[in-house]
Design a protein around this nucleic acid. Structure first.
Lengths: 128, 128
DNA sequence: TTATAAAATAGTAATAATTATCATTATTGG
DNA sequence: CCAATAATGATAATTATTACTATTTTATAA
């Protein structure tokens, strides 16, 4: 049974105000301003719980620590190869690729995760 | 400048014989039979190097340790939510999704990585 | 071949990210 | 209000990976 906690609400609220998919560490540093005694374990525990109940998204980019997204609606992310920042993409859903994957696969495809890679606008300029 | 190493060749060769995308630890346990003194650091160093030069693929699933794939050609993977195994999918390339992502994005989309999730054949049977 | 420079190794320590443990505190339903 | 239990903070432990270093191996070329 889930009980209310101020810390959890703050984590959720903080994530909602951000569009840059912060790490657990960043969330920790920021929430310490409001809750100087908050523990990193509390951050991780709640991020995991919120992900489980579908209120936020955990983004495992494969490089560096996990990032967290207060927008639980399905959408896709871009990861800059140069600066590492994670950016939301405005694009339609790709549900059709599940069917392509299902075609010759004997199990059940229930979903997918997609990351796009390349150079973000700023890094693109600097390269030239 | 790259120099030959028996250990590196063995790691590559081992990966080529496997279709199950082993972890660094699994590779280590197996190569110890041939090289009892091989170090886990050597495994990691070479897996990273082989990935950099495009001879193998590193698969970061986001759950558990990275997995490695001796097949460097682009292809997609399925990850079973229940048993965690990683399976190669027989399906066409999805290059068109890069264009969909590029459409409203000011940077440059160079590539993507896709994982499909669901139940593998065995786990699907056990659920019923 | 042998001398030498560079690269790779084994062994080990260190780091980064995350999870577990546990005594205490907060929340909730009756 | 009170008991049950969920959540917390503090800390230890674990997991996965990378860094360091003395030694060994490989490539080059005299």
């Amino acid at each position: 049974m889930l009980k209310y906690s101020r810390q959890r609400e703050s984590i959720k609220k903080f994530l909602m105000t951000r569009t840059d998919h912060p790490t657990a560490e960043t969330i920790y540093e920021n929430l310490r301003k409001e809750y100087p005694k908050i523990s990193l374990g509390t951050i991780y525990r709640n991020l995991s719980l919120l992900t489980d109940i579908g209120e936020i998204q955990t983004i495992s980019t494969g490089v560096g620590p996990d990032r967290f997204d207060g927008n639980a609606k399905p959408h896709y992310h871009f990861i800059c190869k140069h600066c590492g920042q994670v950016i939301d993409l405005k694009m339609q859903g790709l549900e059709h690729i599940n069917l392509l994957a299902q075609h010759e696969f004997p199990g059940i495809i229930e979903g997918h995760s997609v990351f796009f890679y390349g150079s973000c606008e700023e890094c693109m300029r600097q390269e030239k």
